[in-house]
Design a protein around this nucleic acid. Structure first.
Lengths: 157, 157
DNA sequence: GTATCCATGCACATTCTGTGCATCACACCT
DNA sequence: AGGTGTGATGCACAGAATGTGCATGGATAC
């Protein structure tokens, strides 16, 4: 693990909340010059701590109204099946997250689509036809209370 | 819904993937001048389509190694209980996402913590003591295959 | 004590941003 | 058809942000 001091941590905490902040502003808040913030950011980017910068788009305003979590159980736990399923989900743009899970479902997918019809299509045409899939169990998010995806830097966690 | 044309869609698609791109580069890729890209971005920001810009930090490199999904069932489906639980999860920094779900679990939380001990603490000290919570069912992500949180602009979805 | 290494601040050249302005295309109305 | 208005566009330019060179200072090791 790269060594990250208090300055770095504070830079990361600010940037993950608002990446549009300038190095100057950032420096004022943490007590560092803009150039030094620039250098630290560059180091954090080069070492892979800062992976990239992303725009956060309101899904509803561009027509994506349905979020669902889909649990998937594979047919046999062979290495080959797992491999093929990984390749599948990586290529599906509707899948925002895919995790290998403990418990009775092998995978948990977070899926974003335009409407319920698109969700049905996704399950029936992308997931179920894949012959390593035994069964799926989907649950729809009726309301999203929080979706910031911020690492809990706050509170010294 | 704000009207968004093809230029806007392409701007959004690029920005959600890489917000560090300059207006000049963006303009070259979609066939627009930098100034016009700037104006469109400003409009998208003002109308709330572009909510904010975030740095994507590698969780492992700053010590957050455990991702878990926690399903929560409330005791009684009273409006008051729901309200209090909402306020609770909004204030918990470990919770990256919180959704109200269909199915046998009322809520699904995505939780990020440093280790399994912190997960146990979170469940035993933050969740279970809350007297509207009936029971929780947690599942740990052993491996994350995908976590881009990109809206599926690609493929004309 | 001395040498070395690294973080820091300052200055400056380069790049980026966003606004003013004139032009153009398109729609609408008479 | 002609005239008018609205909005999108590109260009130019002023202001701002970035990042690199350079000298300084503090800490560590020998």
């Amino acid at each position: 693990m790269i060594d990250i001091d208090g300055f770095d941590t504070r830079i990361l905490a600010f940037l993950q909340d608002d990446a549009a902040v300038t190095n100057q502003q950032l420096g004022e808040r943490i007590g560092l010059s803009a150039s030094q913030v620039s250098r630290r950011r560059q180091r954090l980017e080069e070492t892979g701590v800062l992976r990239r910068y992303r725009a956060d788009i309101d899904p509803a305003s561009v027509g994506f109204t349905v979020v669902a979590f889909v649990g998937v159980a594979l047919d046999a736990h062979s290495r080959q099946n797992a491999r093929r399923f990984k390749d599948l989900v990586r290529g599906l743009p509707e899948v925002q997250e895919a995790h290998v899970m403990t418990g009775d479902m092998d995978y948990l997918l977070k899926v974003v689509v335009r409407d319920l019809a698109a969700l049905a299509d996704f399950i029936n045409e992308d997931l179920l036809p894949h012959d390593s899939v035994r069964n799926v169990r989907s649950s729809i998010a009726m309301e999203t209370l929080k979706d910031d995806n911020l690492l809990p830097f706050a509170a010294g966690l």
